[in-house]
Amino acid sequence: MAGEAEHSEGGLAFHPLQQFEIHRLFGEGPIEWYTPTNISLWMAFAVLAIVAVFVFGSSSKSLIPTRMQSIGELAYDFVHNMVEDVAGHDGAKYFPMIMTLFLFILFANMLGLIPGSFTPTTHIAVTAILGFGVFVFVTLLGFYKHGFHFLGLFWMSDAPLILRPIIAVIEVISYFVRPVSHSIRLAGNIMAGHAVMKVFAAFAPMILISTIGIVVTPVSILAITAIYALEVLVAFIQAYVFTILTCVYLKDALHPGH
């Protein structure tokens, strides 16, 4: 990394990963499974924001929506249409679950863009639970709904007979890679964006240290602005991608025939 080299020359501090550290909210000591930490604090903020928009925002149940209510209605329509279009009409039963995933990821990502905040979705442990949770749920649902026929998902009946076992092996591998890519994609995208912003932020005070800062400081500030705009987009797109992939996996479980 360039950061390591700069660190030795000037007084710039490069700790792009420091923002991801988990620490206790109160007192000292080890982090037990029940300890309130900064990750639980920002998850709680996400819950509060979701409740504020979706419960208090729509409390008037007005025919002509208020601003908050129309945000809730937009999100409802957005996810509902996604579930119906991708997973089919019988997928609508799982709409609350998918809405929960979408809103948690979206709000965690968006709140994470507040300077100085903490982003739960940058952590592999969090996204892996989400991704593997979806994987286990969808697999069990497929076997529950279709029993042994669920394995037909891997058996391409319209491919030439000789290719079918090979395709089946590839399909099985890709099926088990799904949760890994599903969770790494989310954590990787969000973490990379935050780390890049932190690196640019570390370059910003260069003007206080050396004359080259006249060039470096404005460039890095502009870069932070640009990356921030991109990150707002990524925060939404990653929530969308995670949700739509969940819908696709759900469709495979509900309708395993190709």
Binding site: I22, W33, T37, I39, A46, V47, A125
Partner: peptide, 17 residues
């Protein structure tokens, strides 16, 4: 710790939703 708080969060959001 992360997994515990994540599950708590998801359950709360699911119930509210």
């Amino acid at each position: 710790n992360q997994i515990f708080w994540l599950l708590v969060t998801l359950v709360i959001i699911y119930i509210v939703m």
